[in-house]
Design a protein around this nucleic acid. Sequence first.
DNA 1: TTAAGTGTTTACTATACACTTAACACCAAT
DNA 2: ATTGGTGTTAAGTGTATAGTAAACACTTAA
Lengths: 120, 120
Amino acid sequence: MKSFGTYVRKQRERLRAGDPEYSLRKVAARIGVAPSFLSNVERGQESPPSEPKIHALASVLGEDPDVLLALAGKISTDLQQAICHRPQVFARLIRELKDLPDHAVEQVEQAARQVREGQW
Amino acid sequence: MKSFGTYVRKQRERLRAGDPEYSLRKVAARIGVAPSFLSNVERGQESPPSEPKIHALASVLGEDPDVLLALAGKISTDLQQAICHRPQVFARLIRELKDLPDHAVEQVEQAARQVREGQW
DNA sequence: TTAAGTGTTTACTATACACTTAACACCAAT
DNA sequence: ATTGGTGTTAAGTGTATAGTAAACACTTAA
């Protein structure tokens, strides 16, 4: 599996190529961590930062926060709360879907939107 | 919101009424923690145990592990992994469903089963 | 050549998590 | 009166989390 640090470094350097505002130090300052910390994280010497810092990083790098969080093995707290609020129904649904291919899950997503519209 | 400890104590005492094997000490021994720890957890003096202990506790008390984990604000690692494996599609789906009523989510669950059967 | 910038290395820290150990007070039976 | 059971209290422990601070080595630009 792709590591959080490697991915972040790649994306940051891609941006840095066209804009010096994306140096390690500048980005670290913008997300509110010490440069050394970001350096170690990007090289996998330390585990990924906390959820708030990952959200800030996603915003700075223009990445999807859910993807970045996933690379860190975490789940956004709003999703956590939604699941914890109705654990049984969500647990069943996720287990039902986890082994299905992407297009099947998207079909279900489509069904969800239809059900949602039927609500109003 | 109902607390983890209160819920566990209530369920354990319900079982203990008909069977002395469900004393705090016995249950603590069965799930592999010190009695004092379970005592403090049940009275909300300490935060809920780790996921493995919660699974063991669910098994001993005959409870749904996902429900017990949810009361502790946690999500089973198999669900975590499923979500982290395809973060975007699951994030969208969960956010789509979180504000819908139970019966709507169950409709989607039904759709998921149908899609699944269409796979084979 | 010195100043400002780059990323890196090492060492350290404060807080939270997930418990344990030992002792306490109480009750029931022997 | 002591043994075996109940739950409780207080204090301590090892590990992980989530970082910081300071110094190092190196590369441009003035």
